[in-house]
Amino acid sequence: MQQIINFLIRYKNALLFLFLLLISLVFTVQSHSYHRSKFINSANFLSGGVYESVGGVQDYFKLKTYNEQLLEENARLRERIQRAKTTVPSSEDSLSMLSNIYKDSISQFEFIPAKVINNSYAKVDNFLTIKGGRREGIQKDMGVITSKGIVGVIDKVSGKYSTVLSVLNTNFTTNAQLQDTDHYGQLQWDGRNPNLAQLIDMQQQAPVAVGDTIETSGRSAIFPKGIPIGTVQDFKLDQSKNFFLITVKLINDMTNLGHVYVIENNDLEEIKAIEAASINEQ
């Protein structure tokens, strides 16, 4: 007994070192597996508040860019309204039918605006912190986009802040497809260049060409179909010779994000319930 106590006293610093190292390694391993990191994240009042105060100053320098982005988005939306008006048929029957379809497709997804207060892009696993949390109706696993295209998925949520798992995160993955055909693959990031992502498992038969637009496929409940991701910069066959490995140039400049939209899927619970039911039957 005496010896054990002596041993503990003698090596107390080494033991403390090993103990603390163990804790930090547990945190690290958790952070490398998707949705496991429970304790340490920036969606809390302290880091959220600190980031918000800096974000306020930086906003003034970026006002011009934000204005241009808004103008661009307005122009695009106006164009879409014009096109919709000209294609509406005159018959009253088909009009009510069309408006019903339109209403359905609109009400499935709702968009919650939020402001980016911290953004990282130089690390291997990048996160954003946004102002907006449970109070605004934001929940885990909602999609995040800008007016141009995809940004990431909500990871942790507190009352006023949330963290976003960025596209630039090795744990991020989503379904993506070619704009013109329905061939799809998995979008990933290799942790190197913040402008380029990788699209894997795209069928060899797909008619891929440099410059083609890649968009979300709507196969998951997170993103609706047709949100732009980027353009094909380069493609080659992978080792199995059956699938394409496509380098995608991201449409968003991930190093310069100001305002984003969080996508709320109103049918999420229904989709989850029916998926869970079909898994249970197997």
Binding site: L20, S24, T28, S31, I40, S42, S120, K123, F127, D155
Partner: peptide
């Protein structure tokens, strides 16, 4: 110290482990 940086950077415990070393 490391853990504070980890909290702001959402990086798990990598700053903490490095500072400990």
């Amino acid at each position: 110290t490391g853990l504070t940086l980890d909290m702001f950077g959402n990086s798990g415990g990598i700053h903490a482990a490095a500072c400990l070393f």
